[in-house]
Amino acid sequence: MISTKNIHNNETILENELSYRNLFNTIEDAIYIQDEEGIFLDVNNGAIKMYGYIREEFIGQGPDFLSAPGKNNFELIKQKLDDAFNGIPQQMEFWGKKKDGTVFLKDVKLYQGIYFGKNVIIAHAQDITKRKKEEEKMQAALAEKNVLLKEVHHRVKNNLQAMIYLIEMQIEKLDDKKVQIFLRELQEQARTMSLVYEQLYQSDYLAKVDMDEYLTNLISNVIQAFSLDKNINFKVNAHNVSLDVEIAMPCGLIINELLTNSLKYAFPEEFEETPALDVELSYESKKITILVSDNGIGLPHNFDWENTDSLGLKLVNFWVKYQLAGSIKLDIKSGTNYIINFTYDR
């Protein structure tokens, strides 16, 4: 005779199983319960809908039953199942094959769990085929955009190079030294802009400029143009900072102008030391600091550089204040030192 207590226990077990089954099947994604070897002990309606098999066809099978032939690494899958069973959550992509033969890609997350008192693996899977196709389309579109952008950079660089060459031709025809110097300065401004596009064209990353490489090339060009065969020592340190193109360009023009001034005025014939130029660019706490220094004769203590007649310094002041929304200070205690600060939230 069955006791009332046993009947109550059986009813409780049945109620618990029904509650579990209802909860299990309310999850739209596919859920698989697997033993230590990866054999399916149970699946929810989401898994049935995903593959098209009935529940009984899953039970007792392993991951190979659901796999698209030749598209999954089962040694890796076995390792991930072992790790998940031992309490280390795992994630992987799995190529599945539905009952109707459709091949699709799913994202699978594996966790340790308990199933009616037994340690098991709980697998949660989502069909990501559509998402992957969209990602591939976006990658293709991005690659096409990058090709077009590289071509734009290349053409802009070529146009600037043509302008530099035409200016050089005019310089060779002129005898007026002042006009020659003016055109040489104009030429170096064009070259400064050209360097940005040349670096972007050669780079895999088309939105930012590596300032170490850019400034090293820039200062080399300026020295070559204005050193008048003097031996110039120079140092560049941009602390591995990369800047957006629209910020790198005015920075380059400012530094070009300040270096040009140093080479023109800081080292007269009677200067006995070895001329030296120093350019440093750093980024900290959302602020860029640029230091442009020389060890030359310096400027007069009463020199008002912000109200000078020098077109170059007027341009520097304009670029700093209106293009970079920054500030610039002059230190003439030893040589000439310009300190530029502006906010940059990268």
Rank of each mutant, 00 (worst) to 15 (best):
Y205F: 15
Y283N: 03
K178F: 15
W319H: 11
M169Y: 13
E11L: 12
S220I: 10
L160W: 05
Q90G: 01
M211N: 01
I77M: 00
M1H: 12
H124Y: 15
G46K: 02
L330G: 02
L324E: 06
F58Q: 00
E246Y: 15
I328K: 05
Y197I: 05
Y265A: 01
F271G: 05
T260P: 03
E17R: 11
D204L: 10
L142R: 08
N25T: 06
S327A: 10
F94Q: 02
I332R: 05
R191E: 15
Q189G: 11
V108N: 02
I171Y: 05
F65Q: 02
S67A: 14
E172V: 11
L299Q: 07
I164R: 06
K5H: 13
F24T: 03
N9F: 13
D29T: 07
L81A: 02
L291Q: 06
I128S: 02
R191W: 09
K99H: 09
Q180A: 09
F303V: 05
N295V: 03
I33H: 03
L263W: 01
E151M: 10
V320P: 02
S194W: 07
D175Q: 12
D107R: 09
N233V: 09
Y197F: 15
N22Y: 14
N10R: 13
C251D: 04
I297M: 04
E144N: 10
V245F: 07
I255Q: 00
I122C: 00
L14C: 08
S3T: 12
P63Y: 02
